[in-house]
Design a protein around this nucleic acid. Sequence first.
DNA 1: TCCCTGCGGGAAAGGGCTTTCTCTGCGGTA
DNA 2: TACCGCAGAGAAAGCCCTTTCCCGCAGGGA
Lengths: 357, 357
Amino acid sequence: MATLSDVARRAGVSPATASRVINGSSKPVTDELRERVLAAVAELQYVPNAHAQLLARSHRSAVGVIVHDVSDPYFAEITRGLQRVATDQGRLLMICNSYRDPDRELEYVELLRGHQVAALILAGSGYHDEAFTRQLNEKLAAYEATGGRVAVIGRHEHSGDAVMPDNRAGGYLAGRELCGLGHRVIGVVAGPRILTTTTDRLAGLRQALTEQGRDLPERRIRYAEFDRDGGAEATARLLDADPELTAIVALNDSMAIGALATLRARGLAVPQQISVVGFDDMPIARDVTPALTTVRLPLVDMGVRAMSLVLGAEVAAPRVEVLPAELIRRDTAGPVPLAARVSAGSAPRARRGDAAS
Amino acid sequence: MATLSDVARRAGVSPATASRVINGSSKPVTDELRERVLAAVAELQYVPNAHAQLLARSHRSAVGVIVHDVSDPYFAEITRGLQRVATDQGRLLMICNSYRDPDRELEYVELLRGHQVAALILAGSGYHDEAFTRQLNEKLAAYEATGGRVAVIGRHEHSGDAVMPDNRAGGYLAGRELCGLGHRVIGVVAGPRILTTTTDRLAGLRQALTEQGRDLPERRIRYAEFDRDGGAEATARLLDADPELTAIVALNDSMAIGALATLRARGLAVPQQISVVGFDDMPIARDVTPALTTVRLPLVDMGVRAMSLVLGAEVAAPRVEVLPAELIRRDTAGPVPLAARVSAGSAPRARRGDAAS
DNA sequence: TCCCTGCGGGAAAGGGCTTTCTCTGCGGTA
DNA sequence: TACCGCAGAGAAAGCCCTTTCCCGCAGGGA
């Protein structure tokens, strides 16, 4: 690889001058030398060594991002928002996939710190794990102590800037919608229970049901991976345990799609026999058939906000921006079936009648 | 930020010793010093400066990857394959999204070269653009001249190692399938015509139709963006121009999903009234309703192969691995409707009869 | 006793670039 | 004519590590 001094030698100038020409320094250089340098660069196909540049400049400019998986639509959307702001400000993004492995998350914090990023953004659910949370906070604090900026998206841990989708309110919306449609026996296809996202959404949902005089016993909740196959499998288990289910809330859209697949496989008509509500409103939600009723989160906006926080002026008090959830009514949630409505009261009498029909 | 010499000073050793401890060098260090260094590292929350390390080691280890967009399922799958091999070999991946902008692609080649990557992988369609192709090849050649390895996935440009999905054969399979089902009036929802992927798939499709005595006039092809909305829009235009269409081939699955959306909006039953065949078999293809009949490409495997080529032994002759396409029959392609079969001969007489019915 | 060997540790030389500081030479002013 | 100031170029000092080379010392063999 050609180096800067190769270029300088070839152009018959000092490395300093070559550097100035190449980087468009403010220091003036005569046109003749400039031309010679540029010619040398072209002839040698010279590309500056980024590591050397970064080291010499000791100029923190890149921003580190830790997500579960960029190719997961939830994070893809958030990343789109992050990217938009970063590009506007001429920042490079370093994106790392933790695949929801806490250890890997910790490692990536160090890795990114080592790469001298100007800021760090952690997106995705936090964990109900005391030890991990403490460790993470220590690392983040150490990073902040050296001037690094940190923001989190959708997790509570961090004491500093945060962008929070209103998961709880979203869960509430889903619950209220189904209650309004007359459903009483509602199952939940949930993500891993160690994730705060799962428990937050669940809490909102439970609150809505309670307010409407329904309940949400643990046996109507199935925890699985937060993806399509997890949703399919959890739905199957739910159905096996409780055939009287008239509605399912999936705690994200991927799981909802898995749920729809299982329901289709079992010949259950959606929404005539059973309703489904998803969560997140990822792009594909409108294209499945029937189109998915779901709770929308402003994902791109979340990314935009987080990056703005982290690149904006430093403020003494930590800022927490809560972004609202919104119910998107499409075609997977309908009124409770008549048969189920008859047996609605959970009195044994009604149950028997239902079973006999 | 604490530096190595801070650590060394605190531990009362030389930077050399500190470095050896931290990096687990093969050179032996007494336990006492080791402990002192480790303690200092912990106290100072020391993290090595990655740029300095990379510079000092001058050790090309990372691999650069340029794709259209990692969050596009097509590339997400390929990337999964790349990642798998890279992780096995302890390589870091630097992934860049070109968003199908040739200039950005060129820039990223330089950027990655500057970052001293050991190899470069370009995934995604090439362009019918002489000037760009030449420029790209020059840059790649310059990189290879300095010992860099290069492989491309799904593009013809490069003269070296390549992994090629058999796009042409895939197009052929789609065409043969539809002909076999009796379709005669087949429309194509195509990606941008500047992409070689588009033209390759189209060529295979055209060959199949020709062999079966059908033709594929330009007016039955609509070019649009290679995504959902492009597919939806192109389908609408196609339908407007040619209401007699009984089948649509979408040149990738995203477009196929857009096509299904348009057909649904217009109340056309799939596959009873009109058939649809996609391309790529991305994961969501099985979850749309009806499940998408499509041409599968071994995406993950393509990534695996490419990374293996590039990290494996250097070989004099460039290797080109062609990976086969496979037709996946699901539910969107069915026999041509009876009405259309009657009017199959393009004789005016039959047409009139059809219109009267 | 002497020399050689080998081990544990430090000094110092890069690695390639940026940037400050210094120097030279020229034009302009007193 | 003497001096000042400034423009334009180069010398050199980092930036923070890694790794080679070298040194001192202790132990073992002759």
